[in-house]
Amino acid sequence: MNALKKVWDHHGIIEKFEANRNEELAGPMKAYLKNHFPFLGIKSPLRKELVKEQFREYALPEPGRVFDEVWKLYTLPEREYQYAAIALIEKMKKHVTTEDYPSLLQLIETKSWWDSVDSIAPHFVGHLVKLDRGYGEKTMMEWSLSNNIWTNRSAILHQLKFKHETDIDLLFNIIEQHSSSKEFFIQKAIGWALREYAKTDPSSVKSFVERHPLKPLSKREALKHFK
């Protein structure tokens, strides 16, 4: 550990964030997420700089305590703390293993909304799937069958950045399971996943869309960049 750094303490982030609380900005930020979460009113560039400052000032937690420390932030009321918790996982991503699926699932199903789920699923869940593709496929199929729409959305989106490493059978299989869903966030995720994979393999996506009944929103999103 760098002797010049303090021992990790999540209160450092709390102090930094509280010192920059802005009630004037907090209202519109809360409204943007449909009033689901309170905000401190710290815009993204400043929030990211404050988190970087925390990482410069404090040594990172021990690898085995990553999620213990993540939860100390994630359970705080204001949304900026969930973002800070996700930033801590990103900073310690190399220490996240397949044993951490339950921890990521708990995060996905806690304080759930598109902003947190869409950070966790492609970046961290996708990372775990790549570590063990067989186990990852089994886990994603289980998540796809969950009765929680955010867990379903995570299964749909976990390969979002895989490009040529995409397991196309898994992607299409999970999408087929949800193609008739009436949930906006599921329809949108299907379209997004297909649109992103179309950048790598447009013919497969076009063929899939033509052969399978998709909701209009999913189809429109999937074919957004096709001429």
Results as ranks from 00 to 15, higher is better:
residue 4 L to Y: 12
residue 9 D to L: 03
residue 14 I to F: 09
residue 17 F to T: 03
residue 18 E to G: 02
residue 19 A to W: 03
residue 19 A to T: 06
residue 21 R to D: 04
residue 38 P to G: 04
residue 45 P to Y: 03
residue 51 V to E: 02
residue 55 F to V: 05
residue 56 R to H: 14
residue 62 E to R: 14
residue 63 P to I: 11
residue 64 G to C: 04
residue 65 R to C: 13
residue 69 E to P: 04
residue 70 V to H: 03
residue 72 K to T: 11
residue 80 E to L: 05
residue 80 E to R: 05
residue 81 Y to M: 04
residue 87 A to N: 08
residue 88 L to Q: 05
residue 98 T to G: 15
residue 102 P to S: 05
residue 104 L to H: 04
residue 110 T to S: 15
residue 111 K to M: 08
residue 122 P to T: 03
residue 130 K to V: 09
residue 131 L to E: 12
residue 133 R to H: 13
residue 135 Y to D: 12
residue 140 M to N: 01
residue 149 I to A: 04
residue 151 T to M: 12
residue 152 N to K: 15
residue 155 A to F: 02
residue 156 I to G: 00
residue 162 F to H: 12
residue 163 K to Y: 09
residue 164 H to F: 12
residue 166 T to K: 06
residue 173 N to L: 09
residue 176 E to G: 07
residue 177 Q to A: 11
residue 180 S to L: 13
residue 183 E to L: 11
residue 196 E to P: 07
residue 197 Y to Q: 12
residue 197 Y to R: 09
residue 200 T to K: 08
residue 200 T to N: 11
residue 205 V to E: 03
residue 209 V to L: 09
residue 210 E to G: 08
residue 213 P to E: 12
residue 217 L to D: 02
residue 219 K to P: 00
residue 223 L to R: 04
residue 223 L to Q: 08
residue 225 H to C: 06
residue 226 F to N: 05
residue 227 K to Q: 11
